[in-house]
Design a protein around this nucleic acid. Structure first.
Lengths: 196, 196
DNA sequence: GACATATTAGAACCAATATTCTAATATGTA
DNA sequence: TACATATTAGAATATTGGTTCTAATATGTC
């Protein structure tokens, strides 16, 4: 029927993504996205209902892709590999990782989360929680609150901490961070009797 | 000579601080600070040359106070205690810790760092680096790059990671985070031969 | 080729907020 | 009490950036 689209959604996302990685989330204005791909601002609003929707879509697609890989490893029961997933993913995806791991979600998406977006985000959380639960059950026999916390720490919090410093400096995380993360993960797996 | 000040600097800082803790750095407008203490915006600019200067002063005073306590423990050579300093400080300073540990510095202080402010910040970094160096020298005999990294990880990055999740949720870090941090710190202190 | 509609196009609009400016006011000193 | 000045006071200004609106344009279908 109508005329063919001149720009793809990916182009809009990609423009937003580069700008976030280069100058931080604040610098992403609707005008800057438009300019980056040579479109007028009106076109942006024709595709997306608001700036928030662009940022949310971008964030979600990166988060989904990250989490997919993580859960595959976790489901396979590879504990150490799961803890190393973050630094390795960061090396493979330097731009995406700044958006997902360096900035807070609220910096990217300030205001209202439209229903549809919230659902996708909740789906992600749900999926992660259940993946962790079954991992812990498999590894430790039973899924105590204490063991869940240990694994969140070993597989998520610590790996994130290990790369953040490097993301801030725009450098690829050096190999030694894997060693630190691995040692921590091994320690966390050594659950003593009183912990079970 | 002139008339006495009606408001103290602390009042301005404190107003800014509460707002950051409650609604995030974005919500701190010059008008909101003024309103919080019942002053007109003009008074704010009479004291501070810009919004940035308020935020920078606030951030610096918190950072200095945090770091002072940390370095005392570190200088005393108490490794585990140093790693536990962060979660414990967070429990004692719930408001301050959101400003110092939850938000990125760039969120608080966006643009230019005036000379004077930059100097104070650089002083802090310098002081921390040198404190860490002498700690590592004392603990490990020699101050290798590798050991420095391990200690930054054990004493700074991991403790920070251990509380961030809780700061986001506006809850005091539960006691068990100390256990996780302690175990990690112990692991990091066990430097094997090939690491020295 | 004519029509319908998706899309481009960009000017205009609006809201928020940092900053400036001018006037009024209070207080320490002579 | 009168003067000098730090401070309060808040209205006015300027800028930035998201959003809306109207017109022009291209493209698939009849």
């Amino acid at each position: 029927m109508g005329r063919k689209a001149h720009f793809t959604n990916e182009q809009f996302y990609s423009a937003a993504m580069s700008r976030v990685a280069e100058n931080g989330p604040e610098s992403v204005t609707v005008a800057s996205i438009a300019e980056a791909i040579g479109a007028p601002v009106g076109s942006v609003y024709h595709r997306f209902s608001s700036r928030e929707m662009i940022m949310a879509g971008l964030w979600l697609s990166i988060a989904e892709s990250f989490q997919k890989g993580f859960l595959e490893i976790l489901d396979a029961g590879h504990c150490i590999a799961a803890s190393l997933y973050t630094p390795q993913w960061v090396r493979r995806n330097p731009i995406e990782s700044k958006i997902l791991l360096l900035y807070r979600r609220e910096e990217l998406i300030g205001g209202e989360w439209p229903e549809q977006v919230r659902e996708r985000a909740e789906g992600l959380e749900q999926e992660l929680r259940s993946g962790l639960n079954s991992f812990v059950k498999k590894q430790f026999g039973r899924c105590s609150e204490k063991n869940i916390r240990r694994m969140v720490f070993a597989l998520i919090d610590v790996p994130l901490a290990s790369v953040r410093r490097h993301l801030e400096n725009d450098e690829t995380p050096p190999e030694y961070v894997d060693e630190l993360v691995r040692e921590t993960c091994i320690t966390m797996m050594e659950v003593r009797n009183e912990n079970i």
